[in-house]
Computed example of a mutant assay.
Amino acid sequence: MPTTTTVIVDQDGGVDDVLALVLLARAPGVEIAGVGSVHGNVSATAAADNGLRALEIAGDHSTPVVLGASEPLARPLHLAHPEDLLGKAAGSPKRKPGREETAAGQMVRLARANPGQVDLLALGPLTNVAIALAAEPELPRLVRRVVAMAGAFEVKGNISDCAESNVWHDPEAAAQVVAAGFRLTLVPLDVTRKATVTRLWLERLAADQDRLRGRMAAMFLAVPGKLPAFPLHDPLAAAILLDPAIARFQRTPVTVDVGEQRRGQTRTVRAAYTAEVAVAVAADTSALLEQLIHALMPGRGPRE
């Protein structure tokens, strides 16, 4: 019998978060057990709505989406895209996010109910994961693995010279997560910046008669300042979760700087007392595009 990959997705509502969710929702053998929202690109409330929109685009009208942390553990809130252009362009989702539990509570509940069977894909600041870890210290052993789009090692950051945005928004949370002993994979800017789609590729996709492909491409084209090449940060992390063989990794301890001068900087270190994580150092971007095109094929549905 085919195996099913069960995933919890924690996301902050950007356009590439939406594409990563669509990729997972339409991948065969994948069950999205729950989606949480977190501050980062947009507010946690807007991120929850954008998660619902992504699932609706993919034809998934049942996966629970819940609200998560609205601010970092110890920092003032900073939103990368407070205007939420995606939300303005897409209209209101048909469903409302669940309010019975938080995103961190959902993580803990699903991990306890399915020990060693659930993967976590973190596409935004790691605040919810840190809160879940505080509530359940056994979380690193209950979750099968964590894949996070996070960090910048040998390249410049995208929010400061030394920091990647997801880590910079809540460096205290990131520091706790990388040191916790999760089976953790970081997909940093070093590889995601090389995973791009061009304006021409998107325009051809937008002209496609298939509604799903056209809607996804039009969504990318509507975001200013990202073209002619649009980096697929979060979709690459999702693709690596689905097929780790498309990437090459370095296993190393990692630290996160929580000081003001180098806030959010991620560094590899030689420290026997620090947990090793797998840092993606190369990825087959053609495999990502193949996954995307396959996911956007007509007739493919969620959880097929």
Rank of each mutant, 00 (worst) to 15 (best):
L52C: 01
G181I: 11
E290G: 04
A150R: 06
L242M: 06
A135S: 14
T266S: 12
H81K: 07
A20I: 06
H169W: 01
A150L: 01
R263K: 14
R144C: 12
P298Y: 07
M219D: 00
V9C: 08
T45S: 09
A25V: 07
L289G: 01
K94Y: 07
V18K: 03
T255P: 04
H61C: 09
T198S: 15
R215W: 06
Q11R: 13
I131T: 15
R193V: 02
T285F: 12
A280Q: 05
H81C: 08
T102E: 00
L110S: 11
P228C: 05
P188F: 03
P125N: 10
H61E: 14
R213E: 05
E172Q: 15
R267A: 12
T192D: 07
F249G: 07
M149A: 09
R53C: 04
E71A: 15
R109F: 12
V66K: 04
T6V: 12
K88V: 04
L236R: 06
V277L: 13
R75H: 02
R145T: 13
A218C: 05
Q250H: 09
D243C: 03
K226L: 15
V66H: 11
P76N: 13
L23C: 10
A163T: 04
R26K: 14
A287F: 12
G299W: 01
A287Q: 12
V147M: 00
P115W: 11
P2I: 08
T266F: 07
E100K: 13
A272D: 13
G87K: 00
Q176M: 14
V9Y: 03
Q250F: 08
V177Q: 00
A295H: 13
D16A: 12
A20Y: 09
P298T: 13
F249V: 09
L24P: 05
P228D: 13
M107P: 13
L73N: 03
A271N: 15
L126H: 09
H294Q: 12
E164M: 11
D12R: 01
Q261E: 15
F182A: 10
A237K: 03
L77A: 09
A163N: 08
P140W: 09
L133I: 08
A69K: 00
L288M: 03
T6Y: 11
I131W: 06
F182R: 00
A111T: 13
L123K: 11
T268H: 01
R53Y: 04
V22Q: 02
